[in-house]
């Protein structure tokens, strides 16, 4: 587990809560969430449906302001989308621009950042190589399989060279084999880039396999109720890692924690 020192804090979340107006008056979705995440750490967040996991990720990504508590990303208070933070969504079908080719989808964030055309192209190609999609640059995303489409979305985030990558159930809509290969690709990418990764998942095994630490959110309003650092050896291996005693122990504890 990474030792968290103040200089190397990617996220510092202190007593964050979210209360939103709803048809039945005010609805408290998240309450008193506090944690820190170190740079380069991989943190998985698990929880049952309706516990506010997605809301938490929207707060971290700057898409939704917290209504209580304080929140910093890279030592700066979060107001709007923070520098160096990019979010990948579960619904790749909706998150990719169908009228743009794969390459031009990946370049979108770079265009917004004012990166010159040649450099854009190089960085997009590099990002596509990282997710093994070189050669698909001129295809339209809807011609690709679900796994490839999600890779495009990840490449689009990577092209911006983010320090922090947020992912909302990134592999939730994919079949088991595709999921496994994307998990390993994500670990490789993280090793290469040193990015901090926070992701949400329904899948306890996925959380343990990928993460340095796993958080459990439960209740209504959602609260951070459990945290575990499985301490698995790297590099991970789909067969070996999942059979490690530490993996099985973490799975048992998380299953209990999720009740």
């Amino acid at each position: 587990m990474t030792t968290v020192t103040p200089e190397a804090t990617a996220y510092a979340v202190d007593a964050v809560g979210v209360t939103l107006p709803s048809a039945a008056g005010k609805l408290e979705i998240l309450k008193d969430i506090s944690f820190t995440v170190g740079e380069g750490e991989i943190v998985g967040i698990v929880g049952r449906s309706g516990t506010g996991k997605t809301t938490l990720l929207r707060v971290l990504s700057g898409l939704l302001p917290a209504t209580a508590g304080t929140l910093t990303a890279g030592q700066k208070p979060v107001a709007g989308v923070p520098d160096g933070v990019v979010t990948v969504f579960q619904d790749y079908g909706q998150a990719l621009l169908p009228w743009r080719t794969v390459g031009r989808n990946v370049e979108l964030g770079l265009e917004a950042a004012g990166v010159p055309r040649d450099e854009r192209r190089d960085r997009a190609d590099e990002a596509l190589r990282m997710v093994h999609l070189d050669g698909k640059r001129n295809d339209y995303p809807w011609r690709l399989s679900g796994g490839m489409q999600q890779r495009v979305q990840i490449a689009r985030a990577l092209a911006l060279e983010p320090r922090i990558l947020l992912m909302d159930e990134p592999f939730g809509a994919l079949d088991a084999l595709t999921k496994a290969s994307l998990q390993d690709e994500l670990l490789q990418v993280q090793q290469r880039t040193g990015a901090t990764i926070l992701f949400i998942t329904h899948d306890i095994d996925e959380a343990i396999y990928l993460s340095d630490r796993v958080f459990v959110i439960s209740g209504s309003p959602g609260q951070l109720t459990f945290e575990i650092a499985p301490g698995l050896a790297r590099p991970r291996n789909q067969l070996v890692t999942r059979a490690e005693p530490a993996f099985l122990a973490a799975r048992e504890e998380l299953t209990k924690a999720l009740g």
């Binding site: 700057g62 898409l63 989308v81 990019v86 619904d91 998150a95 621009l97 979108l108």
Partner: peptide, 24 residues
């Protein structure tokens, strides 16, 4: 979702209009 995407990729308002809204 496309508005979320535009926000996380830090598109400003003219870029949102010309690169997302109009083509969509």
């Amino acid at each position: 979702r496309l508005y979320d995407v535009a926000a996380v990729l830090r598109l400003n308002r003219p870029a949102l209009l010309m690169k997302v809204v109009v083509p969509a």
